[in-house]
Design a binder for these strands. Structure first.
Lengths: 188, 188
DNA sequence: CGATTCTTTGAAAACAGTCAATCTGTGTGG
DNA sequence: CCACACAGATTGACTGTTTTCAAAGAATCG
């Protein structure tokens, strides 16, 4: 069940048995099959979500009905919609399973309580948040600075361990180009 | 000097006189004239930086020498390079003054000490970080979902209070299009 | 006011998107 | 085991948009 999350946390910080039990007591596990949703546009997001197995992707849909992928989320990574979570507004994102997946969910309030009680966990979340912000800043920069071709090669390099599990047209969407253009880039 | 920072903080959290003095004791003020740099590519960034007066912009330079603007920073906002700060690596960004500006600097370590001593300040920083991350996520999404024209109108709407202070070719760079294309968008 | 910087315009070239058809590989049911 | 259906990838022709380059006009700084 939540064992995978505990393993992940113990690689980063020390946890007492009591801490572990606190965490497990508020964690729930959700199984998703391929093409099922973790979050649908219009819903308000209320969790911290840790992917313990599988692969998800997050996307929004524009005026014309075209989907735009903003994130791929493999096992041992976090996902959700922090904007919807913080401001309690309906999400503009969908989060959907590419593979059959297992997600460990902790309600926002429960997670805040955990952080208040376990200061090491609080430090870890702070640190993850900082790094996520740094990564987002870098992504913004590469998106405006680099050509689609440069961004493609950067993507497959940085995500080598999941590239083979992602259909190519999804990578095209992530890069903001059409599937045909990605085919042509790859021909070289 | 650092009075503007204290005012800003007091709008968000309560501070004792002792807290104020602690903050002031580690803050330094830097004056920048138009076109001068707060950060230059290759340097390692080591501060928390609060703009108390003026307007700055942050950009990177690509292989071909073309600058790409990733952020405008008006008074009462924070700037820097969190990636360089966290990982202690040379920055790929330049931060430069558009107007004569005043910046209040606090060294990273000093700021961490302040946060450890003033828990309300720690909470504020956590909250700012969360919101900055949410904003970055949204920016990534609009960058890949919307046309340059949509992004332009969103930009001038959300940044109405500084648009008049920013040269148009800089907005074009921020949007990732050529100045000529922006002129043509505006003609409608 | 003089110099510099910024914006606008036009024309040509480069580039990415769209559409439709074809090809490839995978998995299913007969 | 084969045939078929389906999803994904590729290809070519065409269309539309953006960039580039050069030059002229407007605005701003010192």
């Amino acid at each position: 069940m939540a064992g995978q999350l505990i393993n992940y946390l113990k690689e980063k910080i020390e946890l007492s048995k009591a801490d572990e039990e606190k965490i497990i007591s508020v964690a729930t596990t959700k199984l998703l099959r391929r093409k099922q949703y973790l979050l649908q546009e219009g819903d308000i997001w209320k969790y911290y979500a840790f992917v313990s197995r599988g692969l998800l992707f997050r996307y929004s849909v524009d005026d014309k009905g075209v989907p735009h992928i903003s994130q791929f989320v493999p096992e041992n990574h976090w996902t959700g919609d922090i904007y919807s979570l913080l401001y309690k507004v309906p999400s503009i994102f969908n989060i959907e399973a590419i593979e059959n997946s297992e997600i460990i969910l902790i309600k926002y309030e429960d997670f805040q309580n955990l952080c208040a009680e376990i200061s090491k966990l609080n430090d870890l979340v702070f640190s993850l948040l900082q790094r996520s912000f740094a990564v987002a800043q870098n992504r913004i920069n590469t998106d405006i600075s680099n050509t689609a071709e440069q961004r493609y090669y950067e993507f497959i390099e940085k995500n080598a361990f999941i590239v083979a599990r992602i259909p190519q047209h999804m990578i095209a969407s992530y890069l903001g180009i059409s599937p045909e253009t990605l085919t042509r880039i790859r021909k070289k």
